[in-house]
Design a protein around this nucleic acid. Sequence first.
DNA 1: GAGATCATGTAAGTTGTTACATGATTCG
DNA 2: CGAATCATGTAACAACTTACATGATCTC
Lengths: 181, 181
Amino acid sequence: MSIKYVILGFLSWRSLTGYELKQLFVESATLFWSGNSNQIYTPLAELHKEGLVSVEVQPQGTRPPRKVYSLTPKGWDMLKGWVLSQPEAPVQKNAFLLQLAWADQLAVEELDDLLQSYEERLQMQLLIFRELAQRQQAPQRTPRETFLWQSIERNWISFYESELYWTQSVRAQLNTEFREV
Amino acid sequence: MSIKYVILGFLSWRSLTGYELKQLFVESATLFWSGNSNQIYTPLAELHKEGLVSVEVQPQGTRPPRKVYSLTPKGWDMLKGWVLSQPEAPVQKNAFLLQLAWADQLAVEELDDLLQSYEERLQMQLLIFRELAQRQQAPQRTPRETFLWQSIERNWISFYESELYWTQSVRAQLNTEFREV
DNA sequence: GAGATCATGTAAGTTGTTACATGATTCG
DNA sequence: CGAATCATGTAACAACTTACATGATCTC
């Protein structure tokens, strides 16, 4: 459940309310989380019970009181421990590959159309992420942190570039070596 | 819920029991599914209720009866419809990127160690997938289908290669441009 | 005689999603 | 006067995971 760690991470910058956390989640598309309330308020309550964050409740009359969460020393330790933990191998979730696995039933043009629309989908994704990379402000705290955040953006871009390159080469091979007789 | 479609896909080759399906899931690591019973028997029952597969029950004395499932014409239509459906953009699930986002708290060597262990993890993953690509028998039905299955394997390999390349370049930059003062 | 294979299934838990609920205040 | 913003939360659902349950038969 890395979402808890990401919450700890944001709180390591500064104290935040659940509402503000939610916005950070939505803004940073590279995190790839919907940022729904359920995914913020429930884990926050748990983190509080575990003593990793502390709360300062600020009543404000009519509105629900602001609950400003802060990292406790225990929370800092937990965050650092997670950052240093053994990295897992990434996994891609690619439903298109499954479609392709049973695409031999398609006619030559149908298959090329399918690959083309995947290619276009990837081009679109690249546009989105390239634009995001320009817009998104990395936490401007140290040059190295800025570099790390930019590297993460570049990772997403190179993921889609690599996928695009693969698609184009599959298409090309299908059109040269597997033309109809 | 593309798992149902994958089941339809396997059944398009030949009639199969739940048990056999389970093995196919486990064998083909590119599908990336655990292939647990819950993920086979329940969807199969649903597919049957929806009229996409038919069952022939073969009692066999003491053991549970074999239930041999086959694609119905409706199931074929469903499968083809899914194969032709608008492809979605892939997504990577990469927890390491999240660790990296808060890795500026680390010392120079700690950060390099972290990247190195990610790099090693990727190397291992590449070994696994390259070996799998050699072992795994694509359905030997048409040359084009064989090509498609090999392309899927190459996709996974190039995914990890691209990730590895990115990691090495991040490491190199950190070691040249962000050395301690 | 222990463990793998055949063959079915269920139960409980995790992680995430979308949608629902409330209600004041501020902006165009 | 309608929509967005501030601010909390709950409920229901979806997809997938690990572990449990049963029991014969075949292999070492």
